[in-house]
């Protein structure tokens, strides 16, 4: 099935998607998950997950709650390392160098410096709007005033928030509305120029209008950024994602071009889920 605007090279990663991963063809991938197992203590939450993340595209992870989609997302930037007793087995390869970011010898902070994350609930820091967006730059040792100013403005523009906050950059971020706070968190994530952006149900705490704005925003970021988004909202996944992965009970059940998953899934379990028979 041809996607308009995809080169032949990209095609290999898409149809059939999983074959591309298995064949290790040099596809335009930003990352790929290979046979990933994850354990919370003795409890195995991910079971041999395979997933390609195509450069410049939006990949959505869907599935019933408890299926492991958030767990998988939090593997990419090693958030699980913040809590004791968690264990990874397998690989998440980050391209172009091809390092395995879940390898024990890789510092989790290295993964987080390259991969940004937006959380389910807007979580601005109790600081000014400006300070929030500049946080990622400060953390990377970038303190040059004009450079930080420039990047803060650019990130706020990209997050479609600049016009709303340009006159209140020094005010507390807590004064913004929920939707603005979430776009602020997206700007905060964009400012240090991440290679991959993880979004963990970013609209689940927002009203429909704020949700629409975020979806619009993701559409604009497509191409410039590679995005992985977890969502429990199938309409949202269908609207915004290029590729969709359906997970169930820690397994990657099906991965394909979004339009195919939602119109003609191969797996019976996927079909049941998208037709609303469980979840």
């Amino acid at each position: 099935m041809l996607q308009p605007g995809l080169s032949e090279n990209e095609m290999t990663a898409v149809t059939p998607a999983l074959d591309a991963v298995a064949s290790k063809e040099p596809a335009p991938l930003r990352a790929s998950v290979r046979n990933l197992n994850f354990f919370y203590g003795d409890n195995q939450a991910l079971k041999g997950v395979e997933l390609p993340i195509v450069e410049g595209k939006v990949t959505a992870l869907i599935g019933p709650s408890g299926c492991g989609k958030s767990t998988l997302l939090r593997c990419f930037n090693r958030m699980h390392d913040l809590y004791p007793g968690n264990r990874y087995q397998g690989e998440i390869i980050l391209y172009p160098e091809g390092i395995n970011i879940v390898a024990p010898e890789v510092d989790p902070m290295l993964a987080r410096l390259r991969i940004g994350m937006v959380f389910q609930k807007p979580n601005p820091f109790p600081k000014s709007v400006y300070e929030n967006v500049a946080s990622g730059l400060h953390i990377r040792g970038i303190r040059n005033r004009s450079e930080v100013d420039g990047r803060v403005e650019a990130a706020l523009r990209q997050a479609a928030l600049w016009d709303e906050v340009k006159d209140r950059l020094q005010e507390s971020a807590y004064g913004l509305s929920g939707g603005q706070q979430q776009r602020l968190c997206i700007a905060r994530t964009l400012a240090p120029d991440p290679e991959l952006i993880l979004l963990d149900e970013p609209t689940s705490a927002l009203d429909p209008i704020a949700t629409a704005k975020i979806e619009e925003l993701m559409d604009e970021l497509r191409g410039a950024y590679t995005i992985v988004i977890v969502t429990h909202n199938m309409q949202q996944a269908a609207r915004i994602s290029d590729f969709t992965a359906f997970m169930h009970l820690g397994h990657m059940v099906e991965y394909d071009v979004a339009s195919l998953i939602f119109t003609n899934p191969t797996e019976e379990r996927t079909r049941s889920y998208i037709t609303g028979r469980f979840g």
Binding site: M79, R112, F125, R188
Partner: peptide, 18 residues
């Protein structure tokens, strides 16, 4: 302090002391 503040900082690549 809510967990989200902590996770937000770590997710930006901050180390413990930062």
């Amino acid at each position: 302090i809510p967990l989200e503040i902590r996770e937000g900082a770590y997710a930006l690549g901050a180390d413990k002391w930062q």
